[in-house]
């Protein structure tokens, strides 16, 4: 089966970020999406710690120690950007003001349940950050993740067996094998990577896949 590289997965999501959108990119792979949004699209990035208009990393020596993104990396502010406090930042999420959030995930269910913050191992203190607020608040929630775990186990399941971040919150899954929409009928294939067939992708998916709408 053909599988996209992490860069190509981020590139694929970037194609679907429309001009003028307010977007929050989660920590890790989702942050890379910004690198591939074409320059002719004006996209405004939100960072949960209180920034709209997040720009690229500063040149070495130009870092402002207080100006970081949610992943604690140094960033810059684009012209027109602004700062605000935590309460306003999360009002933007819960209040439905963000157009799109892109998050990573451990598991997604057929009904769009998201599990992204904890496994069943509670020997370490769990961390949740802003994931639950983004999950319920963003108008569109895209998950960007590998289709299977490192051990080849499906991450897309009938029901998540890890603790949930949100119930029925995911709209679309971008994996290295396919793009899937969460619909009222179930998971519908939007596109398959390369020459992958529905049967091949179904074989590594723990929930029934519906064929693309013709």
């Amino acid at each position: 089966m053909q599988s996209l590289s992490k860069e190509d997965m981020a590139r694929r999501v970037a194609r679907d970020i429309p001009d003028g959108a307010y977007v929050n990119l989660g920590i890790g792979m989702p942050t890379q999406v910004a690198n591939y949004v074409s320059d002719d699209r004006h996209v405004i990035y939100h960072s949960e710690n209180g920034i709209l208009g997040v720009g690229p990393a500063p040149a070495p020596g130009e870092e402002n120690p207080d100006l970081i993104n949610a992943g604690k990396q140094f960033v810059t502010l684009l012209p027109g950007g602004c700062y605000f406090d935590n309460a306003d930042s999360f009002a933007m999420m819960r209040g439905g003001h963000l157009d799109i959030a892109v998050l990573g995930a451990f598991q997604v269910s057929a009904t769009g349940d998201l599990a992204s913050w904890a496994t069943n191992d509670l020997s370490e203190p769990p961390a949740v950050g802003g994931a639950m607020d983004l999950a319920v608040g963003a108008r569109q929630l895209y998950v960007l993740m590998k289709h299977c775990t490192r051990d080849g186990e499906p991450k897309i399941l009938g029901e998540c067996d890890y603790p949930l971040t949100g119930k029925g919150v995911v709209d679309r899954i971008y994996s290295d094998l396919a793009v899937l929409d969460v619909t009222d009928e179930g998971l519908r294939v939007v596109e398959l990577v390369g020459d992958n067939t529905l049967e091949q992708v179904q074989a590594v998916t723990g929930a029934k896949l519906l064929p693309p709408e013709s």
Binding site: M93, R94, M132, D133, G137, G166
Partner: peptide
Amino acid sequence: PQGTLGERIRAAGAGLAAFYTPTAYGT
């Protein structure tokens, strides 16, 4: 959850006893 933490703090400062949030529902 971070937004709930912030809003619980803000609520205290604003004289509110409690509030309903959609965050974490069903988790």
